[in-house]
């Protein structure tokens, strides 16, 4: 009796998951599933984003942007950013469609800064930046992400913010 019940659950589960993915694929809705587990990201495979030192690095396997004297890349001078200043850093990190991991010939990657003071842009800075950018990446294509940091209205101190990176199969539009 018990065995039968378990088998029933297993079958139902597979059907459910199939429906679920079909939905996500067709609607490009807000992603909920973490397709690549934290452990995969930790061992260096499966991550879409990678640091370009010195202003970013891998902390325990995860991309971290750090412009302070706490960064392991800190050379002993230039402890941070000054006030009332606009800084533009090109090529802080990259995003890549590693086809052998994504299994997709085209993906759309969205990079979003959760701070008003930090904007992002792709490639060489041409005067424009955004809170959020979307980039279509073909198989094994890499894009360089830069950061526009405006320190006006900030006081001395440490600022910890997040960058959200999302991706799904297919082009952005």
């Amino acid at each position: 009796m018990t065995i039968k019940l378990l088998a029933g659950i297993g079958l139902f589960t597979i059907i459910m998951s199939g429906l679920f993915f079909a939905n996500l694929n067709s609607e490009h809705s807000i992603p909920v599933v973490y397709a690549i587990s934290e452990s995969e990201a930790t061992n260096g495979t499966g991550s879409i984003e990678s640091p370009v030192p010195p202003y970013s690095y891998l902390q325990d396997g995860f991309l971290k942007v750090d412009i302070s004297n706490e960064s392991p890349m800190y050379p002993g001078f230039g402890k941070g950013l000054g006030k009332d200043t606009v800084y533009v850093f090109e090529d802080v990190f990259t995003v890549k469609n590693n086809e052998s991991e994504t299994g997709e010939s085209v993906i759309c990657v969205t990079v979003t800064s959760n701070s008003d003071n930090i904007g992002v842009f792709e490639g060489n800075f041409k005067g424009s930046w955004n809170q959020s950018i979307s980039i279509t990446l073909l198989a094994n294509e890499t894009a360089y992400i830069g950061m526009h940091i405006n320190t006006h209205n900030l006081t001395l101190g440490d600022y910890n913010t997040a960058i959200t990176i999302e991706a799904f199969g297919g082009s952005c539009e």
């Binding site: 397709a35 971290k64 950013l81 950061m147 997040a162 990176i165 999302e166």
Partner: peptide, 20 residues
């Protein structure tokens, strides 16, 4: 879903900036 092939990807990465 987590063990399936690539479908959707969403991660948060941190940034730390010191204003000095």
């Amino acid at each position: 879903g987590t063990s399936a092939t690539f479908r959707d990807y969403r991660v948060q990465r941190s940034s730390h900036i010191a204003i000095v």
